[in-house]
């Protein structure tokens, strides 16, 4: 699977997420800060079964970054998609590359 360029890093307001259409999938992209660092998870909240994770708040717990689902606040790890509140649940995570400010995702 190849990397697909989806947007420029400046298109993502620092501290927020956006949703991208990659290879027939909805991918949530998160930019936690002004740094050129972006994480990618599946956009569907596995609890609410709705495409909303990109609209969640980014949070730090236990020294790691998570996104809290806007539906019922379960938190998912930005690195690997595991759920902090229910270890039996996880969402898919995807590789992200940044080239000259362009954000590319492998999904």
């Amino acid at each position: 699977m190849s990397f697909e360029t989806v947007c420029h890093i400046d298109d993502i307001t620092p501290g927020t997420g956006v949703c991208a259409w990659v290879n027939g999938k909805q991918v949530a992209l998160f930019r936690p800060s002004r740094d050129e660092q972006v994480f990618a998870l599946d956009n569907m909240c596995p609890f609410g079964k709705a495409n909303v994770l990109s609209r969640g708040l980014i949070a730090e717990h236990q020294g790691e970054l998570w996104v809290a689902s806007p539906l019922k606040k379960q938190r998912f790890n930005l690195q690997d998609g595991r759920c902090l509140d229910d270890t039996s649940v996880a969402v898919a995570s995807y590789a992200v590359e940044l080239r000259n400010g362009e954000v590319a995702v492998q999904a």
């Binding site: 989806v6 947007c7 298109d11 993502i12 949703c19 991208a20 992209l29």
Partner: peptide, 14 residues
């Protein structure tokens, strides 16, 4: 910011 996808005009098919 109101577009569902940052890279497409598609809508949420769910």
């Amino acid at each position: 910011r109101f577009n569902h996808f940052i890279n497409s005009d598609k809508r949420d098919d769910n």
